[in-house]
């Protein structure tokens, strides 16, 4: 078990390093850098003074060879210093941690909502006797997964904020401002969970052991919740890492539509501004979330299915 953990941690460190390096290289292959953006002023200076760009490039240290810039940045990053936003001089780590609670709050609320609704929809679409009800409920998840997030956001805003005025359209202060964004973000994730879970529930319900449980006289509720769900949940659990990744990606759109501060919106701006330090902090953070959540899921497996033993290949046939 300890050896398993050590190996996984080592893999995690590799993933973080790879994320750091790739984001560095990708941003450098994009045309333009922080100096050209700063010189353009972001406003109406359509024409840029090339001398000014050179001067800024020198001030930002962007005129150094690429490998030197990379090694220096990596060395500092290992000590927790990811550098500063070249234009405002704010430390990148500070910029991200400042808005991180907002994004985590939004993602957590959306995840909770998605899990509850996803489980409800999945069980309801296999549970009722009436086939029309099963089919109607079963059609909802593909619909939810197909509709673009920004469209859901705008639709909710139109009705619940602009028309009924129940919720504010902007900002991130208080619970009321969290409702619409969380619902928006929960729709695709909830739909995904419902799709996965209902499929594997249907599969599990067709297994011979379920027939045996039924033959012993168990009611449908007992068959579902005590026997089928536990086995059916494994494939969904496997996808949790991916789901959290999707959630974080979804915050980009949600935070923009609802004018919330957060990591998603910050990273879009940072890419546009070629603000490498902020982009790297966010990428490394996202990689960290992915590594930790995958590890957590793997550690939970044996608790749900006793046949799984960690660290041994091909434990189940």
């Amino acid at each position: 078990m300890l050896r398993y953990l050590a190996r996984r941690l080592l893999q995690g460190v590799f993933v973080l390093w790879a994320a750091y390096t790739l984001s560095f290289l990708i941003l450098f292959t994009l045309p333009g850098d922080a100096a050209t953006v700063a010189a353009a002023g972001g406003g109406d200076a359509g024409s840029v003074d090339p001398k000014l760009v050179e001067q800024l490039r020198h001030e930002y240290g962007l005129d150094q060879p690429l490998w030197l810039q990379y090694l220096r940045a990596l060395g500092r990053a290992l000590h927790g210093d990811f550098g500063s936003n070249p234009q405002t001089g704010q430390p990148a780590l500070h910029e991200v941690t400042q808005v991180l609670p907002n994004t985590l709050g939004l993602a957590a609320a959306a995840l909770l909502l998605a899990v509850v609704v996803g489980f409800l929809l999945a069980t309801l679409s296999t549970f009722p006797r009436a086939s029309w009800l099963r089919q109607t409920l079963g059609a909802l998840p593909p619909l939810g997964a197909a509709v673009p997030v920004f469209w859901i956001g705008l639709l909710l805003l139109q009705w619940f904020s602009f028309h009924l005025r129940w919720f504010p359209s902007l900002g991130d202060q208080g619970f009321r401002s969290l409702v619409l964004p969380a619902v928006t973000l929960a729709v695709p994730t909830g739909a995904y969970i419902a799709q996965l879970l209902s499929r594997s529930l249907r599969l599990t319900l067709g297994r011979p052991y379920i027939e045996q449980v039924r033959a012993k006289g168990a009611g449908e509720a007992r068959v579902h919740f005590a026997h089928a769900l536990r086995n059916a949940v494994l494939p969904t659990l496997t996808m949790v890492g991916v789901l959290i990744g999707n959630l974080l990606a979804g915050t980009v759109v949600t935070e923009t539509v609802f004018s919330r501060t957060g990591v998603g919106r910050l990273v879009v701006q940072a890419v546009g501004d070629r603000d490498l330090p902020v982009v790297q902090v966010v990428v490394v953070f996202a990689a960290l979330v992915f590594v930790v959540s995958s590890l957590a899921v793997d550690l939970v497996y044996p608790l749900i299915d006793r046949r799984i033993v960690l660290g041994r290949a091909a434990a189940i046939a």
Binding site: P31, G32, D33, V37, A39, G42, S47, P50, V53, G272
Partner: peptide, 19 residues
Amino acid sequence: IADATATNNGTQALSWGNL
């Protein structure tokens, strides 16, 4: 902005702007 500013470095046939 970053892309356009980097591209219009004098090598392009024409550019666009105001001040």
